[in-house]
């Protein structure tokens, strides 16, 4: 089926560029239940201010394999929910980086696009998809996900880093003893902490404990998601 798709998909690079301002993309799959449109890099591309975002094309085998994983994970979000959070296009490529720093994904709720690095951390690839999707939700609903309110959920003596890339706390392994945070990366900045809580909830990586801070964070995320879509189920 995928071979056929590659052969029959017409070149739409210009149309895609006009819509989401990313060059060198082609259609991978359009017919999905939740209306997500999957695109792939046919050639490397650079975008952003001073072309600081870059990503390479991948090979057919990787596209086919990773598409199955990505679509399996994102199929859990309904068409209605995706419309509310403004996500429509999934761009698949590899070696995604911003200003030379490798990254798992780049969410852009304005252009309704999530760029996914297919070669990013195989172990946590699926969880990271939901993590990046949360950034789409958060970016479009900054009023709901109030960071000052979130910070108050932590112990008073805890301080986040100034930015997600200005810290060495980037571990994605889930703590056995959570102590308010799911992972080391949760300790970077509030929005990454929220994204880690969200992605753990989605992937059912949370075993209920007596971690009051984490329980409050979970309640915070669930309440806000419920305000966006009261039919959303974790």
């Amino acid at each position: 089926m995928f071979v056929l798709l590659f052969l029959t998909t017409t070149a739409k690079s210009n149309t895609i560029y006009n819509l989401i301002k990313i060059p060198n993309l082609e259609i991978y799959e359009l017919n999905t239940n939740n209306n997500l449109k999957y695109l792939y890099a046919k050639k490397p591309f650079t975008i952003g201010i001073q072309n600081n975002i870059s990503c390479d094309n991948s090979d057919k085998k990787t596209y086919d394999e990773k598409f199955k994983i990505i679509s399996k994970n994102l199929d859990r979000y309904s068409k209605k929910f995706l419309k509310k959070i403004n996500l429509k296009y999934i761009v698949m490529c590899e070696n995604l980086s911003i200003s030379g720093i490798n990254t798992a994904g780049i969410p852009d709720h304005v252009m309704k696009t999530l760029i996914v690095d297919l070669k990013f951390n195989k172990k946590y690839f699926e969880r990271v998809l939901h993590h990046e999707l949360f950034h789409i939700i958060n970016d479009g609903h900054k009023d709901l996900f109030d960071e000052d309110e979130w910070i108050k959920l932590n112990n008073i003596d805890f301080k986040y880093a100034k930015c997600s890339t200005c810290t060495k706390k980037i571990g994605l392994d889930t703590y056995e003893k959570t102590n308010g945070f799911f992972t080391e990366y949760s300790k970077s900045i509030p929005s990454e902490d929220m994204a880690e809580v969200f992605s753990h909830l989605i992937k059912n990586k949370y075993i209920n404990t007596n971690d009051i801070i984490l329980n409050n964070k979970i309640k915070f995320i669930k309440d806000r998601l419920n305000k966006i879509d009261d039919t959303f189920v974790f």
């Binding site: 739409k12 149309t15 895609i16 259609i27 359009l30 449109k37």
Partner: peptide, 8 residues
């Protein structure tokens, strides 16, 4: 045909 225009 422009299938990507739907919703846009």
């Amino acid at each position: 045909d422009e299938p990507l225009f739907e919703g846009e």
